[in-house]
Write a protein that binds this DNA or RNA. Structure first.
Lengths: 153, 153
DNA sequence: ATTAAAGCAGACAAAAAAATCCGATTATAA
DNA sequence: TTATAATCGGATTTTTTTGTCTGCTTTAAT
């Protein structure tokens, strides 16, 4: 007889790819630990955040290409924010890593689904969708730094 | 000079795996088209919904193992719902396909993140997270069928 | 009984995501 | 100027997800 009454929640909240998670964690770390014009070595970031070094290298290169970071080669080199964390929103970060965004992709994967021709989940899905969009469009990197003590190693 | 002012939204809404999307679409179709005790052939479902047949076969087998479908072999065989669509919630479907649920996985991937030891995004993330959880825990298959005309081919 | 229509099962292949490796380049410091 | 610490760039590997192929079993109709 099964007596286990636990309720399991699915992994629906794994919304970001691992690459994007790494990018966000790294940027929060860089913004929090590195003063302006001071470089963060990628090796340090990777070591502290426990992210595979060579993999992080590629991710941060994308952020550099996207103009979010400035990198310097050579001894004492590293990366730093290209501008104030006030001026960096989550959306930019996510797009820099996963460029294949899609404006209103159907949650059930129907290519033709939109407001005029909705799938069965379409209307129900509006609330969480808008909630998520609001957050990624409005949250800045500095908002994440407000409680600095919250930044995990 | 760049004049393109379009705002791009990231693909954060691709929350379900393709397998889960296929499962949901198939169940909606099966629930909507097949009367009680009438079988739906998997080949028909795959053909109508444009899902790779052999792949769908595996997905529906999982749903059968999970007790959501009943399958019948042989001529005129196929699958049908094991119970009323009133009694099937989205959460069950998702779990049947992606069994590696995780109750409160951190949105930034920190293994130790929870309410007591939150990451920088933790509190901001509560709203969409709860919105999503509410939906997958409360929405039934029959709720998706209410407006039958919405079911895409 | 035979045939055809179904689901079942397992191996395999392709594609995408994640991770690794190595060499080249750059710049600072001794 | 040489050694060292850094990023950069490309190739490669591994893992996961998605998709394909082939044959087997079951069942109903003829």
């Amino acid at each position: 007889m099964i007596t286990d009454k636990r309720v399991f929640y699915p992994k629906i909240l794994m919304i970001f790819t691992k690459s994007t998670k790494y990018a966000l964690r790294a940027l929060i770390f860089i913004a929090g630990r590195c003063e302006e014009n001071e470089n963060c070595s990628i090796r340090d970031v990777a070591g502290t955040l426990d992210i595979p070094f060579h993999f992080l290298t590629k991710i941060l290169q994308k952020l550099t290409e996207a103009g979010l970071l400035v990198s310097t080669k050579g001894t004492n080199g590293g990366v730093r924010l290209s501008r104030s964390p006030d001026a960096i929103i989550l959306n930019e970060i996510i797009l820099a890593i996963d460029s294949e965004y899609s404006t209103h992709e159907c949650v059930l994967g129907f290519p033709t689904c939109d407001d005029k021709n909705p799938c069965a989940l379409h209307s129900i899905w509006q609330e969480p969708k808008e909630s998520l969009e609001r957050i990624v469009m409005k949250t800045t990197l500095s908002a994440l730094l407000k409680n600095k003590e919250l930044i995990k190693l």
